[in-house]
Write a protein that binds this DNA or RNA. Structure first.
Length: 501
DNA sequence: AAAAAAG
């Protein structure tokens, strides 16, 4: 437990933190803030939801204030680069919130909206600029923004940046940036390309790693529902009419698909809207704000919202389509069970998606418990899944405790129609360090809410909404957390079948 | 193969 008061932060910042209701720093905050206040570079292995945003927002604000100088027009002192517009806006909110008692200005620059207000703000001068790459380069090319005075550079979601082909843009930005700066790079995973980038832009960085994914994943009640493609929409509407399903984010694989699903939900009487990259920026903002405000029961999204987006009180993530990128699964389900609360992740799998499911299970090194209790359960898809999975018998004699995987359905009928589920070997993807919890559908119940502190960690999230659950428990990872598997692409386990020949 | 981001 690290109290914010012991981290060396100045009073106006501590006051803002306290006003947000936070007293205790998350691990990444406790590690990063003193380090950053000393001026060190940092490599952070973490995603949003760990308190990452506040971990860099607070020390940057403090540095800018304590070393207050006149800001030249068009020359910001800090630059935060993010892959999506929504993330940029979220980070800007964080600067506004924690900088509210300081005379530090910030502005956001991204595409999809008019340039004029952005140019005006830059010309007036701002200490902090939060940007997506395209518009930033655009404005730089028009001489509306210079990076010659940058003292802080934060590259957020670096792995995603690279995935999205921003590496050239990032290098262009870095090439013209002041060398006299402190640099922070955050990434959820460390593929080779990110390591290279980190080596080239960071100077003797401290590496800080937090593993929220594994601990978060442990708290998420995951299930897979085998279903025919044609039943997916009805199944979704069914689930959303269940009262336990409060605020839900539904992931579709395509933009068009997201629109269709949202339309269907609206027709079914579920307050829903879609968010994806083909929507106008104003529609994106509107949808996200309505979702945050609790006006929407469901937000249907592409992977634009898979990472970083921090909305309080999401009770369910539903993968209407499985992601074809296994990493994306982990990021998607991480939208729920945030800030110590519980969450469920339900994935629909049709017969064409069985391969994706297997990839995901390999990546997370766990089988996802099957829910075959729903009327739409597609026995044939279950059979495809079961038969496509060679049973590598773990030799431990008592290891059949995981057989019972069919209780994920939260108390619907338990008729157990399909034998396929039983045919599915437990811990099949991981012979040795298989987490025994893997097949326990409700890990959250097993963990008593410890000390219902009203206030803990500042997240990137906005101030708690009235309707949002307030159960922010301390969700410091347990000591064994780092032993849990991290889903990096580098360690995709078990290339071999390891079948006991 | 699809998504994001500059227009």
């Amino acid at each position: 437990m690290t109290d914010f008061s012991g981290l060396g932060l100045i009073e106006p910042i501590l006051r803002a933190v306290a006003e947000e209701g936070y007293t205790t720093a998350t691990p990444i905050q406790a590690g990063a803030i003193p380090l950053l206040l000393q001026g060190r570079d940092m490599l952070g292995l973490a995603q949003t939801g760990t308190g990452k945003t506040a971990a860099f927002t607070l020390p940057i604000l403090q540095h800018l204030f304590e070393n207050k100088k006149r800001v030249a027009a068009k020359s910001p002192r800090a630059l935060i680069l993010t892959p999506t517009r929504e993330l940029a806006l979220q980070i800007a909110d964080s600067f506004s919130t924690y900088g509210r008692h300081l005379p530090i200005r910030r502005t956001v620059v991204h595409g999809g909206v008019g340039q004029s207000p952005q140019i005006a703000a830059l010309t007036r001068g701002v200490e902090v600029l939060i940007a997506t790459p395209g518009r930033l380069l655009d404005l730089m090319a028009q001489n509306h923004c210079k990076l010659d005075a940058i003292e802080f550079f934060v590259l957020d979601e670096a792995d995603r940046m690279l995935d999205m082909g921003f590496i050239r843009d990032v290098r262009k930005v870095v090439a013209v940036m002041s060398k006299q700066r402190q640099t922070l790079l955050f990434s959820a995973t460390m593929p080779e390309a990110v390591t290279e980038l980190a080596n080239s832009i960071l100077n003797n960085p401290e590496r800080i790693e937090v593993t929220p994914q594994s601990t978060t994943v442990e708290r998420i009640n995951q299930r897979v529902l085998f279903v025919d493609r044609s039943d997916k929409r009805r199944l979704l509407a069914d689930l959303l009419l269940d009262s336990k399903v409060a605020r839900t984010i539904v992931f579709a694989r395509t933009k068009h698909g997201a629109d269709r699903v949202a339309e269907h939900l609206k027709k079914s009487g579920v307050a829903a809207d879609a968010i994806h990259g083909d929507k106008s920026q104003s529609a994106r903002v509107r949808a996200l704000e309505a979702f945050r405000a609790g006006e929407l029961r469901a937000l249907v999204a592409t992977d634009i919202a898979a990472r970083g987006i921090d909305v309080d009180g999401i009770s369910h993530v539903i993968n209407f389509d499985l992601p074809n990128e296994p990493e994306s699964y982990v990021h998607r389900i991480g939208r729920t069970a945030r800030a110590g609360s519980e969450g469920s992740a339900v994935s629909f799998c049709d017969h064409e998606e069985v391969g994706y499911l297997k990839d995901i299970e390999k990546t997370i090194r766990q089988p996802i418990p099957i829910d075959n209790t729903h009327p739409f359960h597609a026995v044939d898809v279950a059979q495809i899944h079961a038969s496509s999975k060679p049973p590598p018998r773990p030799k431990a004699p008592g290891s059949n405790r995981n057989q019972n995987q069919n209780q994920g359905g939260g108390g619907r009928g338990q008729q157990q129609p399909a034998r396929s589920a039983q045919a599915r070997p437990a811990a099949s993807a991981q012979p040795k360090a298989a987490t025994p919890k893997a097949a326990t559908p409700k890990p959250a119940q097993a963990r008593p809410p410890q000390g219902a502190k009203p206030a803990t960690h500042p997240q990137a999230s906005k101030t708690p909404k009235p309707g949002a659950p307030q159960n922010r428990h301390d969700r410091r990872p347990p000591a064994h957390a780092s032993a849990a598997p991290r889903p990096t692409s580098a360690d995709a386990p078990l290339k071999k079948k390891t079948s006991a020949a």
